[in-house]
Design a protein around this nucleic acid. Structure first.
Length: 411
DNA sequence: TGTCCACTGGAAGGGAGGGCTT
DNA sequence: AAGCCCTCCCTTCCAGTGGACA
Protein backbone atom coordinates (compact mmCIF):
# COMPACT_ATOMS: atom_id res chain seq x y z
CA UNK A 1 0.00 0.00 0.00
CA UNK A 2 2.74 2.36 0.96
CA UNK A 3 4.45 1.62 -2.31
CA UNK A 4 1.41 2.76 -4.23
CA UNK A 5 1.13 5.84 -2.09
CA UNK A 6 4.72 6.69 -2.81
CA UNK A 7 4.15 6.40 -6.54
CA UNK A 8 1.11 8.65 -6.38
CA UNK A 9 2.81 11.09 -4.07
CA UNK A 10 5.75 11.54 -6.40
CA UNK A 11 3.35 11.90 -9.30
CA UNK A 12 1.85 14.86 -7.48
CA UNK A 13 5.14 16.65 -7.30
CA UNK A 14 6.89 15.93 -10.54
CA UNK A 15 10.47 17.09 -10.61
CA UNK A 16 10.51 17.22 -14.38
CA UNK A 17 7.14 18.35 -15.65
CA UNK A 18 5.22 21.43 -14.87
CA UNK A 19 2.40 20.45 -17.21
CA UNK A 20 2.94 17.33 -19.29
CA UNK A 21 -0.30 17.80 -21.22
CA UNK A 22 1.24 20.66 -23.12
CA UNK A 23 3.26 18.12 -25.06
CA UNK A 24 0.40 15.80 -26.02
CA UNK A 25 -0.44 15.65 -29.73
CA UNK A 26 -3.95 17.03 -29.40
CA UNK A 27 -3.03 20.03 -27.30
CA UNK A 28 -3.55 23.24 -29.21
CA UNK A 29 -1.06 25.81 -27.88
CA UNK A 30 -1.64 29.49 -27.28
CA UNK A 31 0.68 30.41 -30.09
CA UNK A 32 1.94 28.54 -33.12
CA UNK A 33 5.42 29.77 -33.99
CA UNK A 34 6.15 30.21 -37.70
CA UNK A 35 2.53 29.66 -38.71
CA UNK A 36 1.31 33.21 -38.31
CA UNK A 37 0.66 33.67 -42.01
CA UNK A 38 -1.27 30.44 -42.33
CA UNK A 39 -3.38 31.29 -39.30
CA UNK A 40 -4.20 34.67 -40.77
CA UNK A 41 -5.18 33.17 -44.09
CA UNK A 42 -7.40 30.49 -42.65
CA UNK A 43 -8.99 32.92 -40.23
CA UNK A 44 -9.77 35.46 -42.91
CA UNK A 45 -11.35 32.80 -45.08
CA UNK A 46 -13.56 31.53 -42.27
CA UNK A 47 -14.39 34.94 -40.83
CA UNK A 48 -17.63 35.47 -42.84
CA UNK A 49 -19.15 32.78 -40.61
CA UNK A 50 -19.33 35.37 -37.85
CA UNK A 51 -21.71 37.40 -40.00
CA UNK A 52 -23.83 34.34 -40.66
CA UNK A 53 -22.47 33.85 -44.16
CA UNK A 54 -21.10 30.60 -45.47
CA UNK A 55 -17.31 30.80 -45.78
CA UNK A 56 -15.58 29.35 -48.84
CA UNK A 57 -14.60 25.73 -48.67
CA UNK A 58 -10.88 25.31 -48.11
CA UNK A 59 -8.45 22.71 -49.26
CA UNK A 60 -5.24 22.57 -47.24
CA UNK A 61 -2.19 20.70 -48.37
CA UNK A 62 1.12 20.12 -46.54
CA UNK A 63 3.42 17.35 -45.34
CA UNK A 64 2.83 15.59 -41.99
CA UNK A 65 3.71 17.65 -38.97
CA UNK A 66 3.62 20.99 -40.74
CA UNK A 67 0.97 22.30 -38.41
CA UNK A 68 -2.07 21.88 -40.63
CA UNK A 69 -4.20 20.29 -37.95
CA UNK A 70 -2.97 22.61 -35.23
CA UNK A 71 -3.67 25.72 -37.30
CA UNK A 72 -7.15 24.59 -38.26
CA UNK A 73 -8.09 23.63 -34.72
CA UNK A 74 -6.59 26.82 -33.37
CA UNK A 75 -8.56 29.00 -35.74
CA UNK A 76 -11.70 26.95 -35.17
CA UNK A 77 -11.60 27.34 -31.41
CA UNK A 78 -10.94 31.09 -31.68
CA UNK A 79 -13.75 31.39 -34.17
CA UNK A 80 -16.19 29.61 -31.90
CA UNK A 81 -15.11 31.72 -28.93
CA UNK A 82 -15.53 34.95 -30.89
CA UNK A 83 -18.90 33.78 -32.14
CA UNK A 84 -20.05 33.11 -28.57
CA UNK A 85 -19.06 36.61 -27.50
CA UNK A 86 -20.69 38.16 -30.50
CA UNK A 87 -23.80 36.03 -30.28
CA UNK A 88 -23.45 34.52 -33.73
CA UNK A 89 -24.02 30.84 -34.24
CA UNK A 90 -20.94 29.00 -35.47
CA UNK A 91 -20.05 25.39 -34.80
CA UNK A 92 -16.86 23.57 -35.74
CA UNK A 93 -16.79 19.83 -36.37
CA UNK A 94 -13.48 18.06 -36.57
CA UNK A 95 -13.08 14.54 -37.98
CA UNK A 96 -9.86 12.74 -38.71
CA UNK A 97 -10.70 10.33 -41.51
CA UNK A 98 -7.60 8.28 -40.95
CA UNK A 99 -8.80 7.02 -37.62
CA UNK A 100 -12.47 7.12 -38.55
CA UNK A 101 -11.59 5.21 -41.63
CA UNK A 102 -14.84 4.34 -43.35
CA UNK A 103 -17.31 6.64 -45.02
CA UNK A 104 -19.91 5.50 -42.54
CA UNK A 105 -17.86 6.35 -39.47
CA UNK A 106 -16.92 9.74 -40.81
CA UNK A 107 -20.48 10.88 -41.30
CA UNK A 108 -21.54 9.13 -38.10
CA UNK A 109 -18.99 11.29 -36.28
CA UNK A 110 -20.24 14.41 -37.97
CA UNK A 111 -23.75 13.41 -37.03
CA UNK A 112 -22.85 12.91 -33.40
CA UNK A 113 -20.98 16.20 -33.27
CA UNK A 114 -24.04 18.07 -34.45
CA UNK A 115 -26.24 16.31 -31.94
CA UNK A 116 -27.96 13.63 -34.01
CA UNK A 117 -28.29 10.18 -32.44
CA UNK A 118 -26.24 7.79 -34.57
CA UNK A 119 -25.58 4.11 -33.76
CA UNK A 120 -22.10 2.87 -34.60
CA UNK A 121 -23.44 0.41 -37.14
CA UNK A 122 -26.73 -0.67 -38.64
CA UNK A 123 -27.77 2.40 -40.59
CA UNK A 124 -27.22 3.14 -44.22
CA UNK A 125 -25.05 6.09 -45.12
CA UNK A 126 -28.06 7.76 -46.69
CA UNK A 127 -30.06 7.41 -43.50
CA UNK A 128 -27.31 9.04 -41.45
CA UNK A 129 -27.23 11.91 -43.93
CA UNK A 130 -30.94 12.29 -43.47
CA UNK A 131 -30.54 12.53 -39.72
CA UNK A 132 -27.77 15.07 -39.99
CA UNK A 133 -29.85 17.24 -42.27
CA UNK A 134 -32.79 16.97 -39.92
CA UNK A 135 -30.64 17.90 -36.95
CA UNK A 136 -29.05 20.99 -38.44
CA UNK A 137 -31.33 22.25 -41.21
CA UNK A 138 -33.06 25.02 -39.29
CA UNK A 139 -30.70 25.88 -36.49
CA UNK A 140 -29.52 29.05 -38.25
CA UNK A 141 -25.96 27.99 -37.65
CA UNK A 142 -22.82 28.02 -39.78
CA UNK A 143 -21.16 24.62 -39.47
CA UNK A 144 -17.51 24.30 -40.33
CA UNK A 145 -16.67 20.68 -40.99
CA UNK A 146 -12.98 19.82 -40.98
CA UNK A 147 -12.04 16.58 -42.70
CA UNK A 148 -8.49 15.93 -41.62
CA UNK A 149 -6.39 13.49 -43.62
CA UNK A 150 -9.15 13.49 -46.18
CA UNK A 151 -7.13 11.25 -48.51
CA UNK A 152 -8.01 8.26 -46.36
CA UNK A 153 -11.67 8.91 -46.91
CA UNK A 154 -11.29 9.66 -50.59
CA UNK A 155 -9.48 6.39 -51.21
CA UNK A 156 -12.17 4.22 -49.63
CA UNK A 157 -14.91 2.66 -51.65
CA UNK A 158 -17.85 5.01 -51.45
CA UNK A 159 -15.64 7.76 -50.06
CA UNK A 160 -16.00 9.90 -53.15
CA UNK A 161 -19.72 9.58 -52.88
CA UNK A 162 -19.83 10.83 -49.31
CA UNK A 163 -17.61 13.76 -50.20
CA UNK A 164 -19.84 14.65 -53.10
CA UNK A 165 -22.92 14.55 -50.89
CA UNK A 166 -21.20 16.72 -48.30
CA UNK A 167 -20.34 19.34 -50.87
CA UNK A 168 -23.99 19.42 -51.92
CA UNK A 169 -25.53 19.35 -48.47
CA UNK A 170 -26.29 23.07 -48.44
CA UNK A 171 -29.00 22.70 -51.03
CA UNK A 172 -31.01 20.62 -48.56
CA UNK A 173 -30.62 22.90 -45.59
CA UNK A 174 -32.96 25.63 -44.50
CA UNK A 175 -31.40 28.39 -42.44
CA UNK A 176 -28.07 26.67 -41.76
CA UNK A 177 -24.95 26.39 -43.89
CA UNK A 178 -22.02 24.00 -44.00
CA UNK A 179 -18.50 24.95 -45.03
CA UNK A 180 -15.90 22.25 -45.58
CA UNK A 181 -12.22 22.26 -44.79
CA UNK A 182 -10.29 19.41 -46.37
CA UNK A 183 -6.81 18.67 -45.05
CA UNK A 184 -4.33 16.31 -46.64
CA UNK A 185 -0.64 15.54 -46.96
CA UNK A 186 -0.97 13.54 -50.14
CA UNK A 187 -0.33 15.39 -53.35
CA UNK A 188 -1.74 12.73 -55.64
CA UNK A 189 -5.09 12.92 -53.86
CA UNK A 190 -5.92 16.05 -55.77
CA UNK A 191 -5.73 14.15 -59.04
CA UNK A 192 -7.82 11.20 -57.91
CA UNK A 193 -10.72 13.24 -56.57
CA UNK A 194 -14.03 13.40 -58.35
CA UNK A 195 -13.74 16.63 -60.38
CA UNK A 196 -17.00 17.95 -58.97
CA UNK A 197 -15.74 17.42 -55.42
CA UNK A 198 -12.40 18.88 -56.34
CA UNK A 199 -13.80 22.10 -57.69
CA UNK A 200 -16.18 22.52 -54.79
CA UNK A 201 -13.69 21.71 -52.04
CA UNK A 202 -10.93 23.70 -53.65
CA UNK A 203 -12.72 27.05 -53.68
CA UNK A 204 -9.63 28.19 -51.83
CA UNK A 205 -6.40 26.22 -51.68
CA UNK A 206 -3.62 26.64 -49.15
CA UNK A 207 -0.19 25.03 -49.05
CA UNK A 208 1.72 24.66 -45.76
CA UNK A 209 5.49 24.60 -46.20
CA UNK A 210 7.49 22.25 -43.93
CA UNK A 211 9.35 23.61 -40.91
CA UNK A 212 13.10 23.82 -41.13
CA UNK A 213 15.31 22.63 -38.27
CA UNK A 214 15.59 26.06 -36.74
CA UNK A 215 11.83 26.58 -36.72
CA UNK A 216 11.38 23.13 -35.24
CA UNK A 217 13.65 24.16 -32.39
CA UNK A 218 11.61 27.31 -31.78
CA UNK A 219 8.48 25.24 -31.56
CA UNK A 220 9.99 22.81 -29.09
CA UNK A 221 11.41 25.61 -26.98
CA UNK A 222 8.10 27.40 -26.76
CA UNK A 223 6.33 24.23 -25.78
CA UNK A 224 9.07 23.18 -23.36
CA UNK A 225 8.72 26.43 -21.44
CA UNK A 226 5.11 25.55 -20.69
CA UNK A 227 5.59 21.85 -20.12
CA UNK A 228 8.80 21.51 -18.12
CA UNK A 229 10.05 22.96 -14.89
CA UNK A 230 12.72 25.58 -15.46
CA UNK A 231 16.21 24.26 -16.01
CA UNK A 232 15.42 20.53 -16.18
CA UNK A 233 16.31 20.20 -19.85
CA UNK A 234 19.97 19.81 -20.62
CA UNK A 235 21.08 22.10 -23.37
CA UNK A 236 21.46 19.53 -26.14
CA UNK A 237 18.04 17.97 -25.57
CA UNK A 238 15.94 20.22 -27.75
CA UNK A 239 18.36 20.43 -30.69
CA UNK A 240 18.69 16.65 -30.54
CA UNK A 241 14.94 16.12 -30.61
CA UNK A 242 14.67 18.50 -33.54
CA UNK A 243 17.47 16.76 -35.39
CA UNK A 244 16.19 13.23 -34.76
CA UNK A 245 12.68 14.16 -35.77
CA UNK A 246 13.96 15.86 -38.88
CA UNK A 247 16.00 12.83 -39.83
CA UNK A 248 13.44 10.15 -39.06
CA UNK A 249 10.14 11.71 -39.94
CA UNK A 250 10.69 15.38 -40.48
CA UNK A 251 7.68 16.61 -38.58
CA UNK A 252 6.85 18.64 -35.50
CA UNK A 253 4.58 16.05 -33.96
CA UNK A 254 7.41 13.52 -33.84
CA UNK A 255 9.70 16.07 -32.25
CA UNK A 256 7.15 16.83 -29.53
CA UNK A 257 6.59 13.12 -28.89
CA UNK A 258 10.31 12.62 -28.44
CA UNK A 259 10.55 15.47 -26.00
CA UNK A 260 7.61 14.29 -23.93
CA UNK A 261 8.69 10.65 -23.77
CA UNK A 262 12.25 11.68 -22.93
CA UNK A 263 10.82 13.63 -20.01
CA UNK A 264 8.70 10.68 -18.92
CA UNK A 265 11.70 8.39 -18.98
CA UNK A 266 13.77 10.83 -16.97
CA UNK A 267 10.99 11.00 -14.43
CA UNK A 268 10.57 7.22 -14.22
CA UNK A 269 14.28 6.86 -13.66
CA UNK A 270 14.19 9.42 -10.91
CA UNK A 271 16.57 11.73 -12.73
CA UNK A 272 16.51 15.39 -11.91
CA UNK A 273 17.30 16.51 -15.45
CA UNK A 274 16.48 15.31 -18.96
CA UNK A 275 19.61 14.30 -20.84
CA UNK A 276 20.43 13.32 -24.41
CA UNK A 277 20.49 9.68 -23.34
CA UNK A 278 16.87 9.99 -22.30
CA UNK A 279 16.09 11.26 -25.79
CA UNK A 280 17.73 8.26 -27.43
CA UNK A 281 15.83 5.96 -25.08
CA UNK A 282 12.65 7.79 -25.97
CA UNK A 283 13.26 7.20 -29.64
CA UNK A 284 13.59 3.46 -29.06
CA UNK A 285 10.61 3.31 -26.75
CA UNK A 286 8.34 5.12 -29.20
CA UNK A 287 9.33 2.70 -31.91
CA UNK A 288 8.80 -0.35 -29.65
CA UNK A 289 5.36 0.84 -28.60
CA UNK A 290 4.34 1.46 -32.16
CA UNK A 291 5.38 -2.01 -33.26
CA UNK A 292 3.66 -3.68 -30.31
CA UNK A 293 0.45 -1.77 -30.94
CA UNK A 294 0.37 -2.43 -34.65
CA UNK A 295 1.19 -6.12 -34.44
CA UNK A 296 -1.11 -6.85 -31.52
CA UNK A 297 -4.17 -5.72 -33.43
CA UNK A 298 -3.36 -7.58 -36.63
CA UNK A 299 -5.67 -10.44 -37.73
CA UNK A 300 -4.37 -13.98 -37.36
CA UNK A 301 -3.28 -14.53 -40.95
CA UNK A 302 -1.36 -11.27 -41.04
CA UNK A 303 0.50 -12.38 -37.91
CA UNK A 304 1.22 -15.72 -39.53
CA UNK A 305 2.60 -13.97 -42.59
CA UNK A 306 4.82 -11.91 -40.31
CA UNK A 307 5.96 -15.07 -38.56
CA UNK A 308 6.81 -16.55 -41.94
CA UNK A 309 8.80 -13.43 -42.85
CA UNK A 310 10.67 -13.61 -39.56
CA UNK A 311 11.63 -17.21 -40.32
CA UNK A 312 12.45 -16.81 -44.01
CA UNK A 313 14.62 -13.77 -43.39
CA UNK A 314 16.56 -15.70 -40.79
CA UNK A 315 15.42 -13.61 -37.86
CA UNK A 316 15.10 -10.38 -39.77
CA UNK A 317 18.55 -10.13 -41.31
CA UNK A 318 17.81 -11.07 -44.93
CA UNK A 319 15.29 -10.64 -47.70
CA UNK A 320 12.28 -12.70 -48.68
CA UNK A 321 10.10 -12.83 -51.76
CA UNK A 322 6.35 -13.26 -51.85
CA UNK A 323 6.68 -16.83 -53.10
CA UNK A 324 9.03 -17.88 -50.28
CA UNK A 325 6.87 -16.22 -47.69
CA UNK A 326 3.76 -17.90 -49.03
CA UNK A 327 5.35 -21.36 -48.92
CA UNK A 328 6.46 -20.88 -45.33
CA UNK A 329 3.12 -19.43 -44.39
CA UNK A 330 1.36 -22.49 -45.81
CA UNK A 331 3.59 -24.76 -43.75
CA UNK A 332 2.65 -22.80 -40.63
CA UNK A 333 -1.08 -23.10 -41.25
CA UNK A 334 -0.59 -26.84 -41.82
CA UNK A 335 1.08 -27.17 -38.42
CA UNK A 336 -1.78 -25.34 -36.82
CA UNK A 337 -4.37 -27.28 -38.79
CA UNK A 338 -6.16 -24.14 -39.99
CA UNK A 339 -7.23 -22.93 -43.41
CA UNK A 340 -4.82 -21.21 -45.76
CA UNK A 341 -5.62 -17.94 -47.49
CA UNK A 342 -4.84 -17.45 -51.16
CA UNK A 343 -1.67 -16.04 -52.65
CA UNK A 344 -3.60 -12.98 -53.73
CA UNK A 345 -4.56 -12.33 -50.14
CA UNK A 346 -1.00 -12.77 -48.88
CA UNK A 347 0.13 -10.34 -51.56
CA UNK A 348 -2.44 -7.92 -50.19
CA UNK A 349 -1.34 -8.54 -46.60
CA UNK A 350 2.24 -7.77 -47.58
CA UNK A 351 1.13 -4.49 -49.11
CA UNK A 352 -0.76 -3.68 -45.89
CA UNK A 353 2.23 -4.50 -43.68
CA UNK A 354 4.32 -2.24 -45.87
CA UNK A 355 1.87 0.61 -45.40
CA UNK A 356 1.98 0.05 -41.63
CA UNK A 357 5.75 0.33 -41.74
CA UNK A 358 6.39 -3.14 -40.30
CA UNK A 359 8.15 -4.28 -43.46
CA UNK A 360 9.57 -2.55 -46.49
CA UNK A 361 8.86 -4.09 -49.85
CA UNK A 362 10.07 -3.25 -53.31
CA UNK A 363 8.35 -4.67 -56.35
CA UNK A 364 11.19 -6.02 -58.43
CA UNK A 365 11.31 -7.73 -61.78
CA UNK A 366 13.77 -10.61 -61.94
CA UNK A 367 13.33 -11.04 -65.65
CA UNK A 368 12.97 -14.66 -66.59
CA UNK A 369 12.16 -15.38 -62.96
CA UNK A 370 9.16 -13.15 -62.87
CA UNK A 371 8.08 -10.13 -60.91
CA UNK A 372 7.80 -10.23 -57.16
CA UNK A 373 7.93 -8.18 -54.02
CA UNK A 374 11.22 -8.31 -52.17
CA UNK A 375 10.51 -7.87 -48.49
CA UNK A 376 12.71 -6.81 -45.62
CA UNK A 377 11.81 -6.34 -41.97
CA UNK A 378 11.56 -2.66 -41.05
CA UNK A 379 11.34 -3.11 -37.28
CA UNK A 380 13.46 -4.62 -34.55
CA UNK A 381 13.11 -8.42 -34.88
CA UNK A 382 13.09 -8.96 -31.13
CA UNK A 383 10.26 -6.54 -30.59
CA UNK A 384 8.34 -8.18 -33.39
CA UNK A 385 9.01 -11.58 -31.87
CA UNK A 386 7.69 -10.43 -28.54
CA UNK A 387 4.54 -9.00 -30.08
CA UNK A 388 3.87 -12.17 -32.07
CA UNK A 389 4.55 -14.42 -29.08
CA UNK A 390 1.70 -12.73 -27.22
CA UNK A 391 -0.69 -14.54 -29.52
CA UNK A 392 -1.24 -17.96 -27.99
CA UNK A 393 -2.08 -19.51 -31.35
CA UNK A 394 1.30 -18.53 -32.69
CA UNK A 395 3.46 -18.90 -29.61
CA UNK A 396 4.65 -22.46 -30.32
CA UNK A 397 5.56 -21.71 -33.93
CA UNK A 398 8.16 -19.25 -32.79
CA UNK A 399 10.42 -21.65 -30.93
CA UNK A 400 12.96 -22.18 -33.68
CA UNK A 401 13.26 -18.51 -34.53
CA UNK A 402 13.33 -17.60 -30.85
CA UNK A 403 16.48 -19.68 -30.49
CA UNK A 404 18.09 -17.82 -33.39
CA UNK A 405 17.28 -14.43 -31.90
CA UNK A 406 18.42 -15.52 -28.46
CA UNK A 407 21.76 -16.73 -29.77
CA UNK A 408 22.37 -13.54 -31.68
CA UNK A 409 21.67 -11.63 -28.52
CA UNK A 410 24.31 -13.49 -26.51
CA UNK A 411 27.04 -13.07 -29.12
C1' DT B 1 13.48 -9.60 -80.46
C1' DG B 2 10.01 -11.78 -78.41
C1' DT B 3 8.65 -14.83 -74.63
C1' DC B 4 7.15 -15.88 -70.47
C1' DC B 5 7.79 -16.04 -65.44
C1' DA B 6 5.89 -14.88 -60.84
C1' DC B 7 3.80 -12.33 -59.41
C1' DT B 8 1.06 -7.38 -58.68
C1' DG B 9 -2.94 -4.79 -58.19
C1' DG B 10 -7.78 -3.57 -59.62
C1' DA B 11 -12.57 -4.96 -59.28
C1' DA B 12 -16.44 -7.23 -57.72
C1' DG B 13 -18.57 -10.07 -54.67
C1' DG B 14 -19.64 -13.02 -50.57
C1' DG B 15 -20.62 -14.42 -46.06
C1' DA B 16 -19.97 -14.13 -41.04
C1' DG B 17 -20.79 -11.16 -37.30
C1' DG B 18 -23.16 -7.44 -35.51
C1' DG B 19 -26.69 -3.86 -34.83
C1' DC B 20 -30.30 -0.96 -36.39
C1' DT B 21 -35.66 0.00 -37.28
C1' DT B 22 -40.34 -1.32 -37.45
C1' DA C 1 -38.93 -11.43 -35.64
C1' DA C 2 -38.02 -9.73 -40.25
C1' DG C 3 -35.59 -7.00 -43.14
C1' DC C 4 -31.84 -3.87 -43.75
C1' DC C 5 -27.33 -2.24 -43.60
C1' DC C 6 -22.46 -1.96 -42.13
C1' DT C 7 -17.60 -3.71 -41.49
C1' DC C 8 -13.98 -6.98 -42.00
C1' DC C 9 -11.56 -10.47 -44.10
C1' DC C 10 -11.47 -13.06 -47.64
C1' DT C 11 -12.10 -15.22 -52.67
C1' DT C 12 -12.23 -15.35 -57.70
C1' DC C 13 -11.05 -13.55 -61.91
C1' DC C 14 -8.10 -11.12 -64.69
C1' DA C 15 -5.38 -7.83 -67.10
C1' DG C 16 -0.87 -6.02 -66.60
C1' DT C 17 4.49 -5.92 -66.36
C1' DG C 18 10.05 -5.46 -66.20
C1' DG C 19 13.59 -7.75 -67.69
C1' DA C 20 16.67 -12.37 -68.06
C1' DC C 21 16.90 -15.59 -71.20
C1' DA C 22 16.56 -18.33 -75.79
Amino acid sequence: MDIVRDVFASALRSRIFRDREKLLPDYVPESLPHRENEIKKVASILAPALRGEKPSNIFIYGLTGTGKTAVVRYVLSRLEATAREAGSRVKGVYVNTRYRDTPYRVIADIGEAVGARIPFTGLSVGEVFGRIIKAIANTSTIYIVVLDEIDFLARKRGGDDVLYKLTRINSELGTSRVALVGVTNSADLVESLDPRVKSSLGEVELVFPPYNAEQLRDILEARAREAFRPGVLEEEVIPLCAALAAREHGDARRALDLLRVAGEIAERMGASRVTRDHVYMARDEIERDRVMDVVRTLPLHSKLVLTAILIVTGGGTGYATTGEIYERYKALTLKLGIETVTLRRVSGILAELDMLGVITGRVVSRGRYGKTRVVELAVDPKTLYKALAEDITIGDLLEEIGAVLGKRNSV
